[in-house]
Design a protein around this nucleic acid. Structure first.
Length: 356
DNA sequence: GAGCCGTGGTT
DNA sequence: TAACCAAGGCT
């Protein structure tokens, strides 16, 4: 019996071990010619950018329940999209998701481009996502390279060049391995292998369909790959947040953040700047409160870590005076609506602390 | 090219 | 517990 190619061996493994995921068409169904809806593939791939499968699942089903077709998403108010995305992080993805849906629905007659180049022109669709959609939704032999593929291939070929310099070589290797038949299954197979066997630490090499030929396993370097440039330390920033409560119904004062940048377009309670040299716990913070009132400092501070800094917020609470004038761009969110607001996680912590 | 951009789970 | 990490894209 002839030794199967690495590609064939992995596809055979995938036929037996493919993960069952809400947005995935099983290898059995794909073998019968059933391809997934490009809208579903696109939605899942955008949500999965730098985000775990476990975190994505409920958001994915929730979005499809709210907006079953790309035309529905295109017609939705952006505010509703931000509310539905709240908690998932990287909020520019949600803004680009809406833009992309509009492009597809209003300029492309509801059909996603079926080539990498065409897909890459869409907002929020970069090299990875374009290749993933082309491969998974249209079975085009695109070289799909994500973090899993980088890890699996640097180990299999023992690529010692650190990332991101190794990316061109990884892309070339993936292109060589990707078959004309079943390219979508192959891309998902490498990613499943990386997620379940060839994990960052303690890879289960004994269970790997590529163990016989893996240069990293043979050399013993696999667990240390891929090599990466060291990351910079995160600085600490501090600030204060003000939870203003309306007496009659316990509603909380909210406002919208600027449309771009950190937490762009999301909602928040009023607060100070977040800075490395700011004492959110000191009396200076109160000078930036939305109104001069009897602000009560909460004992527990809120800590939160963003991509590039640690944040510590001191939370103050006050009851709004009866004649309080609602500032421009602010609104009252009663308890029944608070859960549905476009509040990022850090702000949910703040509100929780403020109301406790 | 390198910095910006969230969150939650794992080690 | 602090660090690391996840189906990256944009500027």
């Amino acid at each position: 019996m002839k030794t199967p190619t690495p590609t064939a061996a992995l596809l055979s493994w995938y036929d037996r071990h493919a993960r069952v995921l809400p947005w995935r068409t099983s290898p059995e169904d794909r073998s019968l010619g059933v391809l997934p809806d490009p809208y579903h593939v696109w939605l899942s791939e955008v949500m999965l950018q730098q985000t775990t499968v476990a975190a994505v699942k409920d958001y994915y089903t929730g979005f499809l329940a709210l907006w079953p077709r790309v035309e529905d998403l295109a017609a939705a108010p952006e505010e509703d999209v931000m509310k539905a995305w709240a908690g998932l992080g990287y909020y520019s993805r949600a803004r680009n998701l809406k833009k992309c849906a509009e492009t597809v629905a209003f300029e492309l007659e509801g059909r996603f481009p079926d080539t990498e180049d065409g897909l890459k022109t869409l907002p929020g669709v970069g090299p990875y996502t374009a290749a993933a959609i082309a491969s998974i939704a249209f079975d085009r032999p695109a070289a799909v390279v994500d973090g899993n593929v980088e890890r699996v291939l640097t180990r299999y070929f023992e690529i010692m060049t650190p990332l991101p310099d190794a990316k061109p070589e990884i892309k070339a290797r993936m292109a060589e391995l990707t078959p004309v038949e079943r390219p979508g299954d192959f891309a998902q197979a490498v990613m499943d292998l990386g997620a379940t066997i060839c994990t960052p630490r303690n890879p289960a090499c004994g269970l790997c369909p590529w163990m016989d030929d893996c240069a990293g396993r043979i050399a013993g370097t696999a667990p240390s790959l891929p090599r990466k440039a060291p990351k910079k330390a995160k600085p600490n920033r501090a600030g204060a947040a003000f939870v203003l409560v309306r007496a009659q119904d316990g509603a909380v004062l909210l406002r919208r953040r600027p449309p771009k940048g950190l937490l762009g377009g999301m909602s928040e309670v009023p607060g100070t700047i977040w800075s490395e040299d700011f004492d959110g716990d000191g009396s200076e913070a109160l000078t930036q409160a939305p109104i001069p009132a009897e602000w009560h400092k909460r004992l527990a501070q809120v800590t939160h870590t963003f991509t590039h800094f640690h944040l510590t917020l001191t939370v103050y609470r006050a009851t709004a005076p009866a004649d309080y004038q609602l500032p421009e761009g602010h609104w009252w969110s009663p308890p029944s609506e608070l859960a549905g607001e476009a509040l990022p996680t850090v702000m949910r912590k703040v509100v929780e602390t403020g109301l406790t």
